[in-house]
């Protein structure tokens, strides 16, 4: 590991690390945003149409639940290969950062839907009922009761989602997505250069720690139940 302390190592690997970190962050952030755009409404739908929801609808609830379960049952690496044609169709390439985003979104959205469902289920049914008794419409219940009351929990869920997607980007790296995971696999596994693998891995660990700390702090700060 002595090479870690040489100028040559960093001259060569530094730019690669920077690019890898950038790619990982782009994949993670963009995928998270799109996955929430899909997963959040699905999670809300699950809660509203559930047996004890405010708009119970058994058929719709079971159908959405089934689709989500299918999405979650495929391991990411297999799902990624399965949707390659769709990826090509959607973003024009199967490779690189762009090619990684569609499978990441498809894989994370069902997971996020379940996270959102569990966060919203924590909202006290009595509070929802009180809002109903004041004449709240379904849309008002979602925007003014469910989402704001569950916000601290949604944010904590957000950190779990982001970290999961971050881990998936490393898997995406295995089939040519780029990013820190790709670096770790290429240098650590294919070229047997453990020092480079470890540096990439440490960076991944740091990223996860930062995400978790920031989100936990924000969640704690905005949660008025704890004051």
């Amino acid at each position: 590991m002595g090479e870690l302390f040489t100028v040559e190592f960093w001259d060569y690997f530094g730019p690669l690390l920077l690019a890898g970190t950038r790619d990982t962050l782009v994949m993670t952030v963009v995928s998270t945003v799109f996955a929430y755009l899909l997963g959040l409404p699905l999670g809300v739908l699950l809660v509203l149409t559930g047996d004890h929801g405010i708009r119970p609808h058994r058929t719709l609830n079971r159908c959405v639940g089934w689709v989500i379960n299918v999405g979650r049952s495929l391991p990411f690496i297999i799902l990624m290969v399965c949707v390659l044609p769709f990826t090509k169709l959607l973003v024009g390439t199967k490779l690189g950062v762009l090619g990684a985003i569609p499978p990441l979104v498809i894989s994370a959205a069902p997971f996020i839907a379940r996270m959102v469902e569990s966060s919203l289920s924590e909202v006290d049914a009595g509070v929802v009922e009180a809002a109903q008794s004041m004449g709240a419409s379904t849309l008002q219940l979602v925007w003014k009761v469910y989402l704001p009351e569950a916000l601290p929990s949604l944010i904590l869920g957000g950190s779990i989602s982001i970290i999961t997607i971050l881990a998936y980007t490393a898997i995406a790296g295995a089939i040519g997505a780029g990013g820190l995971g790709d670096l770790a696999i290429r240098y650590g596994y294919q070229r047997r250069e453990p020092a480079k693998m470890w540096v990439a891995a440490v960076l991944l660990i740091v990223l996860v720690q930062i995400v978790q700390t920031v989100f936990s702090r924000v969640s704690n700060r905005i949660d008025k139940r704890l004051k």
Binding site: D124, V127, E129, A130, S133, P148, E149, D223, K224, R225
Partner: peptide, 11 residues
């Protein structure tokens, strides 16, 4: 209506 458990919005 008012309730036994108050049901205020906690946030």
């Amino acid at each position: 209506m008012i309730f036994q458990s108050f049901n205020l919005l906690m946030q």
